[in-house]
Every structure is written in C-alpha cells, then in structure tokens.
Computed example of a mutant assay.
Amino acid sequence: MAFESFADFIAMGKHGPYVWSAYGITLVVVLANIVAPLIRRKGLVDDIKRKARREQAES
C-alpha cells in the first residue's frame, strides 16, 4: 500500500485539503447535473397537465 495508515491516506502527503475539496466539488457538480433535469422535468410535466386541464375546462 502506498500509505502507512488511513490518516496518511486522508492527508495525502499534505495535499489532502486540495485533493478532498476537488473530490467534493466534483461530487456536487455531478449530483447537480443529475438532480436539476429531474426537477425541471417535474415542473414541465406539471405545467403541461395544468394547461391540459385549463383547455378541457374551456371546452
């Protein structure tokens, strides 16, 4: 193993804050890219349903 202990692994040879913050930011961006379209899709579906109900009520 490249590291003597788990603490050394977390510290990454004094580069730990940079490495782990890069992983954290990447995780946030990936999650945002997954969740944002789902939220937008739900809003669009709700808008379409609302418009369809309105059109049926007018008929």
Rank of each mutant, 00 (worst) to 15 (best):
I48R: 07
S21C: 13
M12H: 05
D47T: 13
I48Y: 08
D46I: 09
V29F: 01
I34M: 06
G13Q: 05
V45Y: 01
F6S: 04
V28A: 14
L38C: 08
M12W: 06
K49S: 08
P17L: 00
A2Q: 03
L38H: 06
V29C: 12
K49H: 09
A36Q: 11
A36K: 12
F6W: 11
D47G: 01
E58Q: 15
V19S: 09
V19A: 14
A11W: 09
S59D: 13
M1Q: 03
K49L: 12
R41P: 01
A7F: 00
A7T: 05
S21E: 06
F3R: 02
V28Q: 05
L38K: 12
M12N: 06
V28S: 09
A22R: 11
I39W: 04
K51L: 13
I48N: 02
M1K: 07
R50G: 00
V35T: 14
L44C: 00
N33W: 12
E58M: 15
F6L: 02
G13Y: 06
K14W: 10
A7G: 04
R50I: 05
A52N: 05
I48Q: 10
A22I: 09
S59K: 11
T26M: 12
V19D: 11
V35R: 03
A22N: 10
A22V: 15
V45S: 11
